[in-house]
């Protein structure tokens, strides 16, 4: 021990610390959406009827499908970490790729949903939308912002997972050092949790 040179920098690894940092960051993300939920609650309180009317135009089928997609992707992510803990690299890699593909599926669904809304003339600033009562304009304003911001988070999450896939292939993530994968998982689950709240608030309040 004492032959170790003092000048050698101690490689101090603290996985709990790494996860703690991630959790703190996620709480910050939670309050980022929290601000939007505050707005939603106030506007909904002030325009209850308009919100109900506007929500009836939503495609509940696509919304439910996307909920199931995200829930299942959360499952595959959790399984990917468990597989890595058990040292099953191939299984973990497969599950990560499946998670990524679920992300793609979610976005494709979203694309069709938004395209339908735009074709119906419900895009921001459109003559049809601006002619509607103010509560409905606000509903659509919140819908596009909250769902859009969530979509951005899905894309960020997929980018992170893409990096994790690369790290797994290169062996940077392995049985003894998988905290990166855990943190990517935490981020992905947060995206899922946000959707768990967005889903009833926009699709199921008719």
């Amino acid at each position: 021990m004492s032959t170790e040179n003092q000048a050698v920098i101690h490689v101090h690894r603290d996985d709990v610390g790494a996860r703690m940092g991630m959790w703190l960051f996620l709480l910050s993300e939670f309050l980022l959406f929290g601000g939007l939920f505050l707005m939603y609650s106030v506007y909904r309180y002030n325009h209850q009827h308009d919100f109900h009317v506007a929500a009836e135009g939503m495609n509940v089928f696509l919304g439910t499908a996307n909920t199931l997609i995200l829930l299942t992707s959360s499952l595959t992510m959790a399984l990917a970490i468990a597989a890595m803990q058990k040292g099953n690299k191939i299984l973990s890699l497969t599950l990560q790729i499946i998670t990524f593909l679920f992300g793609v599926a979610f976005l494709v669904n979203k694309f069709f949903e938004w395209r339908a809304e735009f074709r119906a003339g419900n895009y921001p600033g459109s003559p049809i939308l601006t002619a509607k009562p103010s509560g409905q304009i606000l509903y659509y304003g919140l819908y596009y912002t909250m769902v859009g911001l969530h979509g951005v988070h899905v894309i960020v999450g997929m980018t992170i997972i893409a990096f994790m896939i690369r790290f797994t292939i290169k062996g940077i993530i392995n049985k003894d050092n998988y905290v990166k994968l855990e943190n990517a998982g935490l981020y992905w689950h947060l995206v899922d949790i946000i959707w768990i709240f967005l889903f009833p608030l926009f699709y199921l309040i008719t």
Binding site: V16, R19, M20, W23, S74, L75, M77, A78, E182, G185, L186, H189, D192, I193, I196, F197, F199, P200, L201, L204, I205
Partner: peptide
């Protein structure tokens, strides 16, 4: 709807996100 959403989030937090295994501080 919100109660169901909270139950779902609790499941994701404690099980998928391993909150029940982490230090109390988390």
């Amino acid at each position: 709807a919100l109660i169901i959403a909270m139950v779902k989030s609790y499941l994701v937090l404690s099980e998928f996100m391993h909150l029940k295994f982490e230090m109390k501080a988390f």
